Amino acid sequence: MGELKRYLDTDYLYFAEVELLLNYGIGYPDLIIKLREKVHQEGMEESPYVVKADTKLFQNVHRFLELLEGSDEPLEDDDTQPLEKWWWHLHKVASGKYPSLRLPHHLREIYRKRRKYWKQRSKENHLAIERLRVVPRYLQL
């Protein structure tokens, strides 16, 4: 019974953390990544809680990254992790540069539908940052 409870706790804890963070802004984004890794290690990929949390995280990837960057322990993509572990490559996902065939089926369709929008958003963010770097001549000292 203890072993079963441990598995239920991991997938539900991951689900609950994603819900709390994305619905109420409460939580630790870096913990979510670590919990997702633990779910993978325990073979809980097909849990309804995991599928639902993955979907919500994926649909809100830009908001999640904003919360992650503002956290005490911001994480960048971990290129030492294989691409099949998409949760370690969320910046690639958000910019539309992640290979869609490496995603589970329930996320692949979401990604394909939003990739064009995400790429455009990434370009717009990059242009806005570039505009901020260019200081008008009359403001230069």
Rank of each mutant, 00 (worst) to 15 (best):
L68K: 07
R121V: 03
Y28Q: 14
K56G: 01
E73Y: 11
L107C: 02
W86C: 01
V93K: 02
L65Y: 11
K5L: 07
M44N: 11
E124M: 06
L127H: 10
K119C: 06
K38I: 01
R6I: 12
E69L: 04
G2D: 13
P82I: 10
R114V: 04
K34C: 01
E17D: 07
Y111I: 02
V93S: 05
N125V: 12
D54G: 03
L107W: 02
K56E: 08
R133L: 15
E17F: 09
K123W: 10
E73K: 09
L107E: 01
E76F: 13
H40L: 09
L107Y: 03
S100M: 06
H62D: 14
E109T: 14
H40W: 08
E124H: 08
K113D: 08
K34F: 01
K85H: 11
E45V: 09
K123Y: 11
D78Y: 08
R115Q: 05
G2N: 13
L20D: 10
W86V: 01
L8N: 09
Q41F: 05
D11Y: 12
E69N: 14
G43V: 06
I33A: 02
L57T: 01
V61Y: 00
G70T: 03
V61M: 04
D78S: 14
L35K: 10
Q140C: 05
K56L: 12
R131M: 11
A16T: 10
E130N: 07
E37C: 00
G96W: 03
L22C: 07
L20C: 09
G25L: 07
K119Y: 10
F15C: 05
A94K: 06
W87N: 01
Y12R: 14
Y12K: 15
P99L: 03
D9A: 14
K116Q: 11
G70Y: 03
L83K: 05
R36M: 00
V39W: 00
L139H: 13
P29L: 01
Y49Q: 07
D79M: 11
E69C: 02
V135H: 09
E46A: 08
D54S: 04
L21Y: 04
H106M: 04
E3V: 12
V135N: 02
D77S: 09
W86N: 02
I26W: 08
Y49N: 13
L75E: 11
L103P: 09
R36T: 00
L8A: 12
K92W: 14
K34I: 03
E73V: 15
A53M: 02
K56D: 09
